[in-house]
Design a protein around this nucleic acid. Structure first.
Length: 291
DNA sequence: GCAAGCCTGACC
DNA sequence: GGTCAGGCTTGC
């Protein structure tokens, strides 16, 4: 499940393996993964050079320059849940669910986009369009300042777990790292952001940084599908403390990890280390979403 | 039947 | 405007 650390790892792979290379041709095998027209996607990207790799939250934008002096375009990559970007030799067998193939340079290597569940998207954007997409996202979770972070929490109601996952406020966290950061900061996932003390908010800010930084260093988390550009899994899986550890003893206190559903997403936490705030206790427990 | 990111749309 | 449910998609 690509969140910031997995997406950053892919971005680093792109910088290492694809920067400076030219897209010789673009083949769209399954048009539904292209936001907009597949023909336009292919024609606007072909013959351009990969000049720069940007990332904000879970979105990657590759700046593509043209030799004829026309304005740059941006390849926006959203991996969704199961999206994979790989550089492969032309003769490597094309795996099932490979939706887009971009031949690089002389065509001996290709940049391939594969996505089993097709929640991911590739788009070809102008600079203005990219600005709009990036502008809608909150500050990147690795670059957000403590002041911005705390300001974004102010007066917010609802569960802090949902707040952490809202990309318009702080961009980059998904279900895994939201649970891990809340555990690290000892905050109950149903706490209201606006009611968390300044000290605790500061701790959460630091925990987000800490968890993401460690995960980036280990190349992210791989459950099943996530792979980096070279096809390697991430190594953060066995560093997870609460995510998908329901019923197992907490690594800090030994109490069994609990799982509840918040806004349709499973949330894992230690009931002892992350005590329920009083305001939430009045609500008679987590709202169970009928499934 | 369930997981997930992201978008749309309904509700207050 | 904020908050949340629903739907997309496929493999287990």
């Amino acid at each position: 499940m690509p969140e910031l650390p997995e997406v950053e790892t892919v971005a680093q792979g792109l910088r290492r393996r694809a920067l400076g290379r030219r897209i010789a041709s673009v083949e769209v095998r399954h048009a539904s993964v292209i936001g907009g027209s597949a023909e336009e996607f292919a024609t606007t990207l072909a013959t351009r050079k990969l000049a720069n790799v940007l990332r904000k939250g879970k979105a990657i934008a590759v700046e593509l320059t043209s030799e004829n002096g026309s304005p740059p375009r941006f390849l926006l990559v959203r991996l969704g849940m199961t999206g994979q970007l790989t550089v492969a030799p032309h003769e490597a067998p094309i795996e099932l669910h490979t939706h887009v193939i971009m031949a690089l340079d002389d065509g001996r290597e290709e940049l391939r986009f594969r996505d089993i569940r097709r929640f991911g998207r590739l788009r070809s954007l102008t600079a203005q369009e990219l600005e709009k997409v990036f502008g809608a996202l909150g500050p990147d979770a690795q670059r957000v300042t403590e002041q911005e972070f705390q300001a974004a929490m102010r007066r917010r109601k609802g569960a802090i777990k949902s707040w952490l996952m809202n990309q318009n406020l702080v961009a980059g966290l998904g279900n895994i790292y939201a649970d891990e950061a809340l555990f690290e900061a000892r905050i109950h996932p149903l706490s209201q952001p606006g009611r968390v003390s300044a000290d605790r908010a500061r701790l959460l800010f630091k925990s987000v940084r800490k968890v993401l930084g460690r995960a980036v260093n280990l190349g992210g988390t791989t459950f099943s599908d996530y792979m980096d550009l070279e096809g390697r899994p991430g190594a953060f899986l066995n560093k997870l403390r609460v995510y998908q550890h329901t019923g197992e003893p907490c690594r800090r206190c030994g109490h069994a990890i609990r799982r509840i559903v918040i806004a349709g997403r499973s949330s894992h936490f230690c009931p002892r280390c992350q005590p329920r705030p009083r305001a939430v206790a009045k609500m008679r427990g987590p709202r169970k979403t009928a499934k």
